[in-house]
Design a protein around this nucleic acid. Sequence first.
DNA 1: GCCCGTTGCTTGCAGTTGCAAACGAACTGG
DNA 2: CCAGTTCGTTTGCAACTGCAAGCAACGGGC
Lengths: 164, 164
Amino acid sequence: MALPKVGSIGEYIREQRQQAKISLRQLAAAAGVSNPYLSQIERGLRKPSAEILNQIAKGLRISSQVLYVQAGLIEDHEPPSDVITAIREDPHITERQRQVLIDIYESFRKEGPAGDEQTSQNAHPRPASAPDDEQPLPPELLAALEPYAAGNGNGPVNQETKEG
Amino acid sequence: MALPKVGSIGEYIREQRQQAKISLRQLAAAAGVSNPYLSQIERGLRKPSAEILNQIAKGLRISSQVLYVQAGLIEDHEPPSDVITAIREDPHITERQRQVLIDIYESFRKEGPAGDEQTSQNAHPRPASAPDDEQPLPPELLAALEPYAAGNGNGPVNQETKEG
DNA sequence: GCCCGTTGCTTGCAGTTGCAAACGAACTGG
DNA sequence: CCAGTTCGTTTGCAACTGCAAGCAACGGGC
């Protein structure tokens, strides 16, 4: 995270644009906004909305989140060091799966305090290619997890709020 | 179709608010916006800016990112999974545990993409209600995980490589 | 009947976003 | 010198956000 803290979102955009060696108009075209408006944004005369910000991020080929954080529209993004938070916020898994993952993680934390096992913390970790071929997981273990994977079976998940 | 989902974000907010069992005005106050404006947002008559969206997310106690994705302001494909990233960067667990967690998570993603629960993203994990019938995890399952919990692979101060 | 508090919705208005058009400066080349 | 292009900027205006104020409906207490 060697990015210098830029007070203004506009300066950051301009920096990124100049690093990419593209003109203001080129970025404006790529982002789908007008050149004058982008000029004003970069100089801090306008406060772009999230939609525009998202388009600019696309045009710059950078993460929207990074830009949002720069704009102060997103909290400091703590996930990088908080597995529990990431699991809690993941919209792709069911509530049941969430709970199972958290439980397993916590049991791991209790089992073995790994001490100082530091790994390379890259900004873009590789997807799923481990250099050493560890066996993924025994099928029996995954089979044991399956009933949890589907939540409570087939009923619509609604057991959450059982307090009228 | 630049903004066809203006309505969906409002619906989502309303769902989350009603799940949290708070009134429109209460959320408006918690989010620091006016009640009429929140009403218009929920009904899809207004497109809230990212700033307002962030405040509403805070008032709802949900992640800003989740709301932004719902609003279509963040591309969902950007982070393959914040959970994976968080697991990979967690220094408290061993490499072995990391792999197990990732495997389980990915198996969950494959198992239950049913997509029937996505919207009930559990805004308030538990305001102040009694815990329901979610058993943490059967001990047998944790027991099955134990051999993986201690798997070192690279522990500097540890017994030598005991292949499991 | 009446009053009071809460719910959500509608209305007018200031302030802002975002753009089309036009501008001056710098560079190319005839 | 003038014509052509590209650069970032400035200007005037339509459209929008976001709010203060006010509205009708539901329910409880006297």
